[in-house]
Design a protein around this nucleic acid. Structure first.
Lengths: 316, 316
DNA sequence: TTACCGGGAGAAATCGATTTCTCTCAACGT
DNA sequence: ACGTTGAGAGAAATCGATTTCTCCCGGTAA
């Protein structure tokens, strides 16, 4: 039976046919659980992302899933919701269910994945680094931020501010660093008074914008570290009657679908999220059939962003 | 061992302690696969949604997951991507892995879930009905559309158009029907020339908008059946120099995060997506421990929408 | 004192697909 | 004609947790 259904060469074709016919007639369905138990693995990957409502992560999910599907794997999507406890729970679920691979956007750099690595389950970190030595897919956030900042300066804005994420987030740190480098590359001196850490949410970004604009030496433009915060910035600017791409310059991270449709369309730093998902899947694949001892050293891949200039960064 | 770890009453506490200590020392981790094989079920629910990039569905996912987590279940999220083949594949995966329940937003009313129901795995349909007799969570789309249309008329718009989804989508049909009822309720005669079926995507909605505006008797306002199409409408209006909430009225389905931040903020029909997820989970729960024969007849729950009036529907 | 009852724990069966083992039969070479 | 080889297929072992079966022993009642 097993030999027939898995198309082993040693089975007489005539008998195999009879088996298949009988199986079809009886409505036989193979039990994936029993199969996994015997094979010590499931044809399932887990993708544990930190925010299912963030289009950036859902794009990663699509990339990973399209690849997985082509390779005969299914993807279990889990939402850790930026909550370390939930993340730990899902890592445990992944371990218990013996998925064959895990892609994770870790909440903290120190997230504990040892139960998985101990069992030889390959783990790939995406978007954020992990202290543990695993394959990692990152974005050249700093370079993207630098390019965005230089762009603002190049089109004529003189005092770009930076609204970045929480200090606990690697991506926020990188984007701030890139902003600073952009200023330096254009012979401007970075000023701490032009930098605000928000929490990647719209509300706090709106507050930060207000603060900046009410400061002694207000900025004339903004580099914003993600698209949700850009919404907050836009709101605050509008409430003051300021138009982006005219009175104020704006570039934000993330090429969310709606960014092309706001008034004015947003200039954005596009992260190759879909490709990140595909790449993470390929890294997983490259370790799947391979015994622990033969596995290559962990690799870190850094993908380039692309600056998409629309209208919000135009200089009036 | 099993008795200890599952806290059976019949185990001597002292022995149980020794077992637990030993288990901890050896780094014992229970094999969820073997457990599922024996118990003939996994503590996993599958949620098969049709578009992971749609905030409406991710909100359903959050609701379902929060409930599941409280009940000790994990949620496997699968993305059918409006593709019947993918949907069928994931239904099969769910069957093979013997998940204990499935929540599905079916691509077609005729989607075949018989393999699951035959095994006694409860299925709940969300957002869209299924011909098969299962618990279903729907939105009172028609009522929401009617309310939105009446609102447009009540604030002074005289010729609202309707841009709805494809004719194959139940939700699109419902929303169109609601639009018609709204007109009739205010003594207006629905005109086919003011109705367009787009495909729930921005591009086609932009085209439809252009068509309507270029018609002989153009509309002065729009009821749009989802938020992504609203993006397309906004784009087309802006390219013609028309401002919503001033020159043109607009109400759209879906309270997406960005709708509050566009210029002007969009008046929307808010669907209780999170609650739908919770409700679907509760329907699943109510059937889980119950033998097939004792199960209640399938129930259909219809949730109310809420009209959120912002500025895009204001009459100039 | 003997018979019975019941708690507790070790041993064995169970779940279903896969893999390994073993046996049969036929073909081939010497 | 006999021994060897190998293909093919049925039987049995395997994966690991749970559940059932069995047995032992202490306590209680007759």
């Amino acid at each position: 039976m097993s030999r027939t259904l898995n198309n082993q060469a040693t089975v007489d074709e005539q008998l195999a046919d009879r088996v298949r016919v009988a199986a079809a007639e009886l409505g036989y369905r193979r039990n994936g659980i029993a199969r996994s138990l015997r094979l010590q693995r499931a044809d399932v990957w887990a993708l544990i992302i930190s925010d299912i409502a963030n289009p950036f992560f859902t794009a990663i999910a699509r990339g990973l899933e399209d690849l997985a599907q082509r390779q005969g794997f299914s993807v279990v999507l889990c939402n850790s919701d930026e909550d370390p406890a939930k993340e730990a729970n899902y890592l445990e679920v992944a371990e218990r269910e013996q998925v064959s691979g895990v892609v994770l956007s870790p909440n903290r750099i120190g997230s504990d994945i040892s139960p998985l690595t101990r069992l030889g389950v390959p783990v790939v970190a995406v978007d954020r680094p992990l202290r543990a030595p695993v394959d990692t897919v990152l974005v050249r956030s700093a370079a993207g931020a630098q390019e965005a900042t230089e762009h603002l300066l190049d089109v004529g804005w003189r005092r770009p501010a930076c609204i970045t994420g929480p200090e606990s987030a690697q991506t926020a740190i990188q984007r701030l660093a890139g902003y600073r480098r952009g200023l330096l590359a254009r012979k401007r001196r970075p000023a701490a008074s032009l930098v605000r850490h928000a929490d990647y949410r719209a509300d706090r970004a709106a507050l930060a914008t207000a603060e900046l604009l009410d400061g002694r030496n207000p900025p004339d433009s903004f580099f914003v570290a993600n698209s949700e915060m850009a919404l907050g910035v836009l709101q605050e600017l509008r409430s003051r009657g300021l138009t982006v791409g005219e009175d104020v310059g704006l570039v934000a991270f993330d090429n969310a679908p709606w960014t092309a449709f706001t008034d004015r369309p947003l200039s954005v730093v596009d992260q190759p999220a879909y490709e990140m998902g595909v790449l993470a899947g390929n890294l997983l694949l490259s370790r799947l059939g391979v015994p622990l001892s033969d596995r290559p050293a962990p690799r870190v891949r850094r993908l380039r962003t692309e600056l998409i200039v629309r209208e919000s960064s135009l200089h009036g």
